[in-house]
Amino acid sequence: MGILKFGGRLLSNMVHKPVTRNYPAEPREYTDRTRGHVEFDPGRCILCNICGKKCPTGSIHMDKAARKLTVDRMLCIQCGYCVDVCPKKCLSMAADYIPPDTEKIIDTYQVPEKPKEEA
C-alpha cells in the first residue's frame, strides 16, 4: 500500500502552494512583538544612562556632556533589556530588522535641551 500513500502526498504537493516564500519579491511580514531593532525618542530622554549601563553587549553609549546617545547597531543583540529598564520609556522595540550593510552602522541621536520645569 506504499504507492497509494505516496500518491496522496504527491497529489497534495501538486495542489498546494509552496511552503516557502519568494523572498525579496514577497517581503516578510513582522508581528507586532517582533524584536527587530531599538528605536529611540530623544524628546523624553533624561540622560540617566541606565540603558547604557545595563546593555549586555555595550552597544549603547551616552555622552552626557554632549547630550548624545549612540547605538551601535552591529553590537545590538535585540534582547530588549534597555527597553525594559528605561524609566521614561523613550526606547522601544521596532518590528523590522535593520537591513544588511557592508559598513558598520552607528546611529547617533542628539538629545535636545529641556526647559527646567519639564525636567
Binding site: 508581528t31 512583538r33 534582547c79 525594559d84
Partner: peptide, 27 residues
Amino acid sequence: EKVLDVFEAVTGGRVILSYCKVGGVKK
C-alpha cells in the same frame, strides 16, 4: 517553522526568546 512563527508572535524572537526574567516572564 510553525512553532518558530508562534514564538515570534508571542515573544518577539524566533529562536532566542528573551522571555524569562528574574521574577517571572516578560510578556
